[in-house]
Design a binder for these strands. Structure first.
Lengths: 232, 232, 232, 232
DNA sequence: CATGAATGAGACTTCATTCAT
DNA sequence: TATGAATGAAGTCTCATTCAT
């Protein structure tokens, strides 16, 4: 499902009529609440009535937006994917080296997991269920892999396998972080190992993995949607 | 666990008489049934009613073996872990090179995932629930990592991080296999990437990852679901 | 415990194992409760949770016996049909004249409707929904019609149409009775009209419709299942 | 909220006209939609949400026309009754013989049930709910019965009982038709039986029941209200 | 120990009705 | 008036768990 990063300002399929921003607001309440619950208990545990309560909304209202648990998952997945798109695009903007972009991606995820374990927890739990989310991630990774391959830094036998490795290694490290494991320079260590796995030479891998991360052009509302804790 | 009515023929290994055997058998039926259900629908979905039916047992009987649903999950995790232990120990028995043992471990998992996707599916779904299961895995991996490090083949910055990477990369590849991805020489490709990530040199990694897998000393009851361990 | 594959030792369709009469008792509670509710509010209104409460049974128990509202309806329909079978068989036993049997049937229904409007109300409301019930009724009526035809008393153009007329006229009259209409000799009046409709001559119709009703061999538990009002 | 049947006709004759027309049209849309739903699923199932959608109107709008679900049911009943009045009046206009009028009424209903089972289905399902509807029917029937009695064709013991019989026999036959029973000359057969039940002599009943039905003075808007299928 | 009916908390889902726009 | 989002009571249904036999 392509579903471009743009939430659709003028989108043909959806309605965005004038005064009716209440609907959008409620929907956002629901997504936020879902993320909070995922962070706490994992996506498998989501109960729609619980979602209603967490979103301070009546029981039936949920059904104006989602008919099943899966639909919530899917919507949250898309929501997170959009956020990630912004995040990644912002952070590796201007970097043209595939290997470096890959490292930046990996490290950014791990940094954020340290800074915001709830976000990480929600992400991990959603990733398992939402197909749309996985493919969004994959697209980014795949692009960097191809660039790195063309630039001669990467040397791997199968792109799909390589992609899976990058994603799963990153997620695994995030899970460790969420579980409380703290390691000095965690992000660089993982990034270096991933680069090595992709065929980067020892010295280059070490060097790239330790470059200072570019500071993203921190837009004011970045991360807006997730950083709050439970409201009550 | 003193069962008064039990015959209890004076301390001896022979006391595994009928009653005990039957008891063990029922317990094993339950675990087997649980694994089948996991493979079909994921561990989150296990319903004890369904479990009872799958095991051809009445629903109340389940509670003679497990006090709660949680206990079932835990027991199944342990069961799988024990199976894994045997599998791994058997397969890398007699191999002393840490790097090779690691590669064998990774490849064995992936091979089995291809050969028995239901098993893989059950394993993946349990791994998320049972903590005890993860540590069982970790123990094996950690040993090999340390050996490889001492032998000078590995060069990594942090053992815990390395361990997480090995496990998560393997699991990620298994998930891909379960999802239907088929790649020529999948197991070797992944093993090579993992070795590279652990600091093995390019040529050595490639060579080790492609060694023929030792045929396990096929014991007659190999693969049989074991563990007649009495409940606690 | 033998745990035999055969749950039913002898019984044809249902199980009737020894100690387990509790199940039968609960089922009966539910049917009784359903009839009481039908009498009060019509079969369309039956709520399964309400049924549970009326039967003094937990909410989930209902689902051990019926999966849907329709299944309750069907079961109640059959229950009523069985009761009716007894009733009718008992009352027109020994009467061989088809026309007379028909009249007796009609009149018995109307008499009972007067005596027990709750029963009538339940019957009317179930009849609309339960197919099984209708066919049970139909069988009786059809038999009498055929006999009457052979005996030369009836003269109608189409048996199915005649049957429908007998049943609907009787039900209509019952509904009127339930609605409070009281008419001197109601049962005879209706019976006479029905006989006329079936082609019986004027004088014979009048005579047959006014014969004294045979007193049924009132068995002690007759009507047992319906006659009680709401228990609490 | 003022609920006057007529808002102030003060300002602007145009507003009055258009507004009123629209209002009446919307109301009619709702009634039509309700009848279509009745025909499909029975009156018990009418959901106002569904009604709104079937009428291409927003759900809140329904409440501008009816205060409660009950009112909708009632209004639909009346609507049908009015349609019936027209139908009956039209068809037996100019016929002065009570017995013949009765036969015509019965037969017309059955004919229409054959031709338009949806209409019949809606009618049958409403009859059970709307009291007002039954009395409308009754009025017509009663008139014909009295006429027939005075003319010496009928001979029945109780007018109320007779009326009930006529109505219920007709409805029963309609139900059979809706259920798919098709009989050659169904309408005449039923009419003849009904006449017999009312005391008409054998030969006369047969003759009257087989007279050709007068063709109604087809007014242009006859049947207007039911004949449309779903609009979209 | 095995059985399976009963339980009841809790989740799911619908829908008549209200109300701000 | 029209709209449609929100509400929440009421009903449906599942399932872990208990218990008498």
């Amino acid at each position: 499902m392509a579903r471009p990063a743009t939430p659709a300002p003028a989108a043909g399929g959806e309605e965005l009529t004038r005064g009716h921003k209440k609907k959008a607001r409620t929907r956002q309440q629901l997504l936020d609440a879902a993320l909070r619950i995922y962070a706490r208990k994992g996506a498998g545990e989501l109960a729609l009535n619980e979602l209603a309560e967490e979103a301070s909304v009546s029981n039936g209202t949920v059904y104006n937006y989602f008919r099943t648990r899966e639909e919530v998952l899917e919507a949250v997945g898309i929501e997170l994917a959009v956020q990630l798109s912004h995040q990644i695009a912002m952070v590796s903007e201007g970097v043209s080296l595939g290997a470096q972009r890959t490292a930046i991606g990996v490290r950014t995820f791990l940094r954020r997991a340290s800074a915001d374990p709830e976000w990480a927890s929600a992400l991990l739990s959603v990733v398992r269920y939402a197909e749309g989310m996985r493919s969004a991630l994959a697209t980014y990774v795949r692009g960097d892999l191809q660039v790195g391959l063309e630039q001669g830094d990467f040397r791997f036998a199968h792109e799909g396998v390589a992609m899976t490795l990058v994603v799963s290694a990153t997620m695994g490290a995030m899970a460790a972080i969420v579980d409380g494991e703290t390691v000095e320079g965690h992000d660089s260590i993982v990034a270096e190992m991933v680069l090595l796995a992709l065929g980067v030479t020892t010295t280059k891998a070490r060097q790239i993995a330790r470059l200072p991360l570019p500071v993203p052009a921190e837009s004011p509302d970045d991360g807006r949607k997730m950083s709050r804790g439970p409201r009550k």
